[in-house]
């Protein structure tokens, strides 16, 4: 196959084959994470800039770790201490990075499309670390890796994603790729957070969690963005939790050894009960480990040299 991409902006234009290639590359990366010495010479001398306009602990740390294990140097460009505070535009920041000859920029921004904007300007590779409500491709990829690890594949597997679908770039990215990989996806949430027009994603949507759980192979709870309650999108957290929160009892409805996923950070007792989050069915911590492996794979694929062809 050919791997010719300079950037990873979303999963829309990746083929199933490319997604599988990323997941395949992440397997040996995960082995490296288990070693006593987690350091490779692979990307020695390459520079990776983490450009985070939105707060993030897990994604930024995960990327930073991934790049460092591969031997690259990382620079944090966190908005709080940068010239963005002095009013610099994204375009000018991009030009500055260009002038510094960086090899890869990982960007998180509250505006949808900002990663693509950067990718068009920069010679360096760009990875979208989450842009507005648009996409969060690396979170989706690490979810696929986790699903593949536990369920062995995607074909015919039933994945239920529950929560605030409307505002979730995680859900959006997940749906796009899962469809390509052949999984059967159901989105569940209250009508205000999952309006009927979300059918454009081309998957089943439902407002009744208990009806959708039977037969599910994987259930993913999304973080309830608590600020949404103030804006009147649902009456109370307690009601939300009662209707859409996952717990040990409810998950039994699947009738299977379903895996329970959450992109983090969790609101324990809201979208997921503590007993379930800490149970054997929960793969939430594995998701974090897999995130580093998948990001290593991506960084290697994007700037590890050799972009004309992939040879086995």
């Amino acid at each position: 196959m050919k791997w010719k991409r300079k950037d990873l902006l979303d999963l829309e234009n990746l083929t199933a084959e490319e997604i599988k290639h990323i997941l395949h590359t992440a397997i040996p990366m995960k082995e490296i994470l288990g070693r006593p010495i987690k350091k490779l010479p692979t990307l020695r001398g390459k520079s990776v800039v983490l450009l985070f306009y939105e707060s993030s602990t897990r994604t930024r740390t995960s990327f930073e770790n991934a790049a460092k294990i591969l031997g690259a140097d990382t620079t944090n460009f966190s908005v709080a201490q940068s010239s963005v505070n002095k009013g610099e535009s994204l375009l000018d920041t991009a030009k500055t990075l260009q002038a510094m000859n960086v090899d890869l920029v990982i960007v998180r921004h509250s505006s949808s499309g900002s990663a693509e904007f950067l990718a068009d300007i920069l010679n360096a590779g760009v990875i979208n670390g989450g842009d507005g409500q648009h996409a969060h491709p690396t979170q989706a990829l690490l979810d696929y890796f986790t699903i593949q690890d536990h369920l062995g594949g995607f074909e015919g597997k039933k994945v239920v994603i529950v929560g605030d679908i409307l505002h979730s770039r995680v859900a959006r990215s997940n749906v796009v790729g899962l469809k390509k990989l052949g999984a059967e996806v159901t989105l569940v949430g209250p009508p205000t957070l999952l309006p009927p027009e979300m059918k454009y994603l081309g998957v089943k949507i439902s407002h009744h969690l208990d009806q959708e759980l039977p037969g599910a192979d994987a259930v993913m709870a999304l973080r309830l963005q608590l600020e949404r309650q103030q804006s009147g999108l649902f009456p109370s957290i307690r009601e939300y939790s009662k209707l859409y929160g996952l717990n040990k009892e409810r998950i039994k409805l699947t009738g299977k050894d379903t895996i329970v996923m959450h992109p983090g950070p969790m609101n324990r007792g809201v979208e997921i009960a503590s007993d379930l989050a800490d149970s054997v069915q929960s793969v939430i911590e594995e998701q974090v480990t897999n995130g580093v492996a998948v990001r290593m794979a991506l960084i290697y694929l994007l700037i590890g040299g050799g972009t004309v062809n992939v040879v086995d």
Partner: peptide, 8 residues
């Protein structure tokens, strides 16, 4: 030019 596939 070619990127080798990484194996475990």
């Amino acid at each position: 030019d070619v990127q080798p596939v990484i194996h475990e």
